[in-house]
Computed example of a mutant assay.
Amino acid sequence: MEKFVLGLLLMPMLVLCSGAPAGAQQATRQQAEFPVADEKPSEVLVKEEPPADGGRVRFDVGAKVASQYISRGVAFSEEPSLQPYITMTVALPELAGGVVRDVSWFVGNWSSLQSGGPGLGQRNSGDLAGWYEADLYTGISLGLPNDLNFSFTYYYYHSPAHSFRGYSDLEWILSYDDTGRWEGIVPLRDFTLSPMLRITQEVGRPGRKDAFYVQPSLTPSFNIGKADNPVWVRVPLAIGLSDDYYTTSNGGTATFGYFRTGLTIAGSFFRLGANPFMVGGGVDFWVLNDKVANGLDGTELVWRAGFRWAF
């Protein structure tokens, strides 16, 4: 596993040093690129918008404040959380060919911090108390025919505050870019459904058997702003399923973990450089399996607000 991850990290560096042209355009994706954990940052408030310069290397930075940290239908922190991230993406057109329209490599970090402890009986100690989670991730993203996109990502989850022991995930995402497919059918500007299938395999999870997780989702979205300055309204619809992730109160396991929906609104009110600075907020509504020991009630509302800037 270590050799495989090292290969992912070094591959784009070797290509960049080969003298290949640096002006290749990256195909637009909606929400399948650089996913982290459950919905971070691939559902970070807004649709993917490539930087205006179309360069080979780009950065995506952002943060959100959430009233509670819930992931995959399980409570990780009952306290308000600040969750910043940064992702670097490198376009690798030299590797495209055949059915693969474009290739990119990405690497990044996502964190979750609280002013105090996370609650739920978890530790919060050491010099970095309050820094509940720091995730490192790297992977590849492929543009395929018929507006399909595929990504594979390796994650390492770490707690600087010693709230949990580290472990890894392997994740595969297949998504379909249905931009323009609903024009003349749905009377909403730039309407999309953004179907996605997310599959995750845990590796080395402490305290129990590694779980296999499946999340099919739709994210109906439309633009209530202008064509050149969109304001996106999004309604996520996702279901969480697993073999061993959801432990029941009697010690067994459940397949169904949750249904999640909600509403987010995001837009750009100004630009930094040539690229829009996106801000937004919304609410997630979780309908949870009450037989699962998830630290939550049968339903939960989570408020969030944040920003995003890609350059």
Results as ranks from 00 to 15, higher is better:
R181L: 05
C17M: 11
S115W: 12
Y132E: 15
T87Q: 01
S217P: 07
S163C: 08
V100F: 06
P50Q: 03
K209G: 05
F222K: 03
S217L: 12
D178Y: 04
I199Y: 09
E33A: 04
I199D: 07
G143C: 01
Y176M: 01
G295K: 13
N289F: 10
W286Y: 14
N229A: 11
F59D: 02
V103N: 05
G295N: 15
E171R: 09
L301C: 09
N289P: 10
R101D: 03
P80E: 10
W110A: 14
I140V: 04
W232P: 08
Q114G: 10
T248M: 13
V233H: 11
L197Y: 03
W303I: 06
S159D: 08
L301I: 08
D244C: 07
A266M: 04
Y176K: 05
S115G: 12
G108W: 01
T299A: 15
V61N: 07
L218A: 00
K64N: 14
V15R: 09
A238Q: 11
D169F: 11
Y176G: 00
S159N: 03
E183I: 03
T248V: 09
Y245N: 07
R198E: 04
P93V: 07
I199A: 01
S242E: 13
S125D: 12
N149Y: 04
A134I: 02
N289H: 13
A134S: 03
Y137T: 12
G108M: 02
A91Q: 05
F269Q: 05
G121Y: 06
Q122Y: 08
T264N: 11
F4H: 06
D102C: 00
Y246Q: 09
G262Y: 14
L237C: 13
N289G: 07
Y156R: 06
R72N: 12
T192M: 01
G295A: 13
S175R: 02
E43S: 10
R29C: 01
S221I: 04
Y246A: 14
A238K: 11
K291E: 14
G166N: 08
L14E: 08
N229M: 02
T179Y: 02
Y213V: 15
S112E: 12
R58L: 07
K291P: 09
N250D: 14
R56A: 00
E48Y: 05
R101P: 01
N250K: 14
G295L: 12
D244W: 04
M278F: 01
A66S: 08
G126H: 11
Y213D: 14
F76H: 12
G117A: 12
A227G: 02
D60L: 01
L263M: 14
Y167C: 15
S115L: 11
P187D: 02
L45R: 05
E300Y: 13
E94I: 15
L9R: 06
E2M: 06
P220V: 10
R58D: 10
